[in-house]
Design a protein around this nucleic acid. Structure first.
Lengths: 156, 156
DNA sequence: TACGCACCTGACGTCAACGTTAGGTTTCGC
DNA sequence: GCGAAACCTAACGTTGACGTCAGGTGCGTA
């Protein structure tokens, strides 16, 4: 029983790729542009990730796939999120940090609002599109059964 | 009153760009990859488009924007559509063409089915995403008002 | 009929998001 | 303790979807 992981639940590159449709290169590229970072390394320099990073990657993939936002934009979103998170982790609670907390929270809230708005717009336009294509499909199915008249203007 | 158009409703490049958020270059590029074609040209070689092409362009933009499909895929979709359309236009109705009509119709129907499925998936996943982010927003708003407790694990 | 703007055809440039190759090191199962 | 497979860094290559420039032509209007 040779346990590979050093810390409980640290994942090798391979282990991450088993969970997500990525390549090693993509993982390294995302690190290069500041989207993720390995939680640690082996003594030999191999990257190790934690489960939080996997979730982060899932979020990245969803943002890409569903909203088509660039990695740059994704980074801004995740940064706002992380800045707030980091601040919450730190225990400093003097007035200074309270100010900063409000600032970061507001920034994050704004990011969230815009994202949600974007999603709502997308849902709406895709739905409208779906309806149009659904109608086309119905017509084609009808056409397939009944053949078509020369002039489609004639009702029957 | 100097009417530019030769045929009723033929549009110059500029007229098309007034209706759609494109550049001349994009118009030419789409022609290059076989997505559109000018309905005619002026004697001097300037492109003229009809309204059908404008609608085609709108469809292209929607497919790109909403589903994120490549121009290559879009071409396949539009081709299936156009093949059927062309066949319907032709008046040949012998058995041969009937066979072909069925074939093209089926192909188009299949294309439509897959597209609609894709849209449904997208609607679903974006909606799910929206709900997740909505929840985050609620939390952040609550947090903003009430500050946050050290251990968020405690219910209250 | 002259002028300015729109348009033309090449052709090369660009940018994001990776792919690929080279040449070496690490890890792991046996 | 060894060999195959996974991983490393560094660097150049690729692909889609256009942008941009050069050098010339067409078009509408004053």
């Amino acid at each position: 029983m040779t346990v590979t992981e050093q810390e409980p639940g640290e994942l090798t590159v391979e282990a991450v790729l088993r969970q997500l449709p990525l390549t090693p290169r993509t993982l390294r590229y995302y690190e290069e542009v500041g989207l993720i970072a390995p939680s640690s390394r082996t003594s030999g320099g191999h990257r190790l990730y934690d489960q939080k990073t996997v979730e982060r990657l899932q979020q990245i993939l969803r943002l890409k796939e569903n909203l088509g936002v660039s990695l740059q934009e994704i980074r801004e979103i995740l940064d706002a999120e992380q800045a707030l998170d980091a601040l919450r982790q730190s225990f400093h609670q003097n007035r200074q940090d309270h100010e900063r907390q409000l600032e970061y929270t507001d920034r994050y809230i704004e990011v969230l609002r815009q994202l949600i708005e974007k999603m709502d717009e997308k849902i709406e336009s895709v739905t409208a599109m779906r309806d149009r294509y659904q109608e086309r499909l119905q017509k084609s199915l009808y056409f397939r059964e009944n053949g078509f008249r020369k002039n489609e203007t004639e009702g029957e």
